[in-house]
């Protein structure tokens, strides 16, 4: 049952979320929009990893998801710091 739910609902929905986030990443008019798109792409891919841990019955993948969350947080902070210290031509 978990297999069917994951295959026919959870994976397609998360893939749709990834695609929509990627559209905003390409389209976003300013750099902060792209940072927000990066944030939601990181959340959706962490959700894919957690779902894969349930479907494949490998709880080790939870460690991957938690490290993924930490790395995405650091990426967002680094990009915001980059905007703050940015100097140059618009």
């Amino acid at each position: 049952m978990i297999q069917n739910v994951a295959t026919y609902f959870v994976y397609p929905m998360l893939s749709l979320a990834l695609i929509l986030g990627f559209v905003r990443l390409v389209k976003g008019p300013t750099l902060p929009d792209r940072i927000v798109a990066f944030d939601i792409i990181a959340s959706a891919s962490a959700g894919v990893i957690v779902t894969a841990a349930i479907v494949m019955d490998r709880p080790v993948l939870l460690d991957v998801a938690s490290v993924w969350a930490i790395i995405s947080f650091l990426g967002v902070i680094a990009l915001a710091y980059y905007i703050e210290k940015w100097r140059g031509q618009p």
């Binding site: 739910v5 749709l16 929509l20 986030g21 905003r24």
Partner: peptide, 17 residues
């Protein structure tokens, strides 16, 4: 819980768009 989580993820991505 999986359905709720993925549904909210899609709603949030729609909001992003």
């Amino acid at each position: 819980l999986l359905i709720v989580g993925s549904f909210f993820m899609v709603v949030a991505a729609l909001g992003i768009i």
